[in-house]
Amino acid sequence: MSGVKSLGRTLLAEGLGSALLAALVVGSGIAAQQLSDDVGLQLLENAAATAAGLFAIILMFGPVSGAHFNPVVSLTDAVLGALPWRTAAAYVLVQLLGCVAGAVLANVMFAQPAVSISNTERATGPHLLAEVVATAGLVLVIFSLARSGRASIAPGAVAAYIGAAYWFTSSTSFANPAITVGRMFSDTFAGIAPSSAPAFVVAQLAGGALGVVLVRVLYPGLTSTEAADAVVPSENSKLSLSRPSGA
């Protein structure tokens, strides 16, 4: 029974964190549009708010769930043997639901229609390549820190990477299938058209797979216990790996 309660608490943390992340991305994008007519300044505002907010929510929920907030991170944890596949599937489900809820929440907070399907087409060759690069880099940042015993600095490193990737990638670094799905439901600065989303998700999964290869090549001694400390060490990461990483 305690295991069920722990799993429920873990999934609640992942769902809330994912919702807050989507609200950060979408809400700061809406605010940026309202505050400035300059696209470059809008992107700067969106990126800065997302990076700062991501740092905070990783600190907030990391000790409970590991602060994945991203199906690619959860699937990578499963591939590396740290997270049971059934638990990873549950993580992915709550991440998707959380990101959709967060996008809707952001819409409502800014007096937009609760659901407005985005018309912003983004699926171009350069954008998809950028998503592969952005996602592979994110996986490498997270799991290289775990392997080298520096998981405690991951909140800042992940936030810094995402903030920078807004600028060095042409796609503005979605790097997250759940965020991609959530952003379909807001026809605002951060939105993505449903017709573009599947290609983005495929590119992100490809980037995640590339990231796993790079982690294994660069850090061949990665153990499943170290992988369990993915984004930040969760409160029970030293327990049996038959349990979820943040349970």
Rank of each mutant, 00 (worst) to 15 (best):
A106T: 08
V100A: 13
A56G: 05
I162H: 00
M109E: 08
G62V: 02
S6K: 15
S28H: 05
V202F: 03
D37Q: 10
T76I: 14
D187L: 01
I30E: 08
A203K: 06
G29I: 07
A136N: 11
G211P: 06
Q112P: 12
A178R: 00
L16G: 01
A203P: 03
G15F: 15
V201C: 01
K5T: 09
L7S: 03
T87F: 14
G182D: 00
Q204S: 00
A48H: 01
A52D: 00
N176E: 03
M60A: 11
Y91H: 11
T223D: 04
G98C: 07
A157D: 02
T223K: 09
V231T: 13
T172R: 09
N70A: 11
A89Q: 05
S118L: 12
H127L: 00
G62P: 03
L20R: 01
S116L: 00
V115H: 14
S224V: 01
T223N: 13
A165V: 04
S116Q: 11
A56R: 02
P155F: 08
G221D: 15
S36D: 05
S195W: 00
F189Y: 14
I30K: 11
V141T: 11
L35K: 12
P113N: 07
R216D: 02
T10A: 13
L214E: 04
L20D: 00
T135P: 09
N119G: 10
T188G: 11
A165N: 10
T10K: 03
I57E: 08
E226S: 06
G156T: 01
G29K: 05
S195V: 03
V39R: 13
H68L: 03
G98W: 08
F69G: 02
L214A: 15
H68M: 04
Q112M: 15
L222R: 05
S237D: 02
D229K: 11
S245E: 09
A103V: 06
P63Y: 04
L20G: 01
A230Q: 10
S36A: 06
R122T: 06
D37P: 08
A88N: 04
F61P: 02
A101M: 11
L21A: 04
N107V: 07
N70H: 01
L54W: 09
N119Q: 12
P194L: 01
P84L: 12
L239E: 11
G66D: 05
T135S: 09
D229V: 03
L140P: 12
G27H: 08
Q204A: 00
N236S: 15
G191D: 04
G15D: 01
G8W: 07
G163Q: 03
A32D: 07
F189V: 00
S116R: 08
A103C: 08
A227E: 03
V104T: 12
L44F: 14
L24V: 00
S237R: 14
E45P: 01
I58G: 05
A48M: 12
S36M: 05
Y219M: 10
T87R: 14
S245T: 14
T223F: 10
R86Q: 13
V79C: 11
S144R: 14
V132A: 09
V141R: 04
M184S: 02
L59E: 00
Q112Y: 13
L12N: 01
E45A: 15
D37F: 06
V115F: 15
V115M: 09
I30Y: 11
A154R: 11
V4D: 01
L214Y: 08
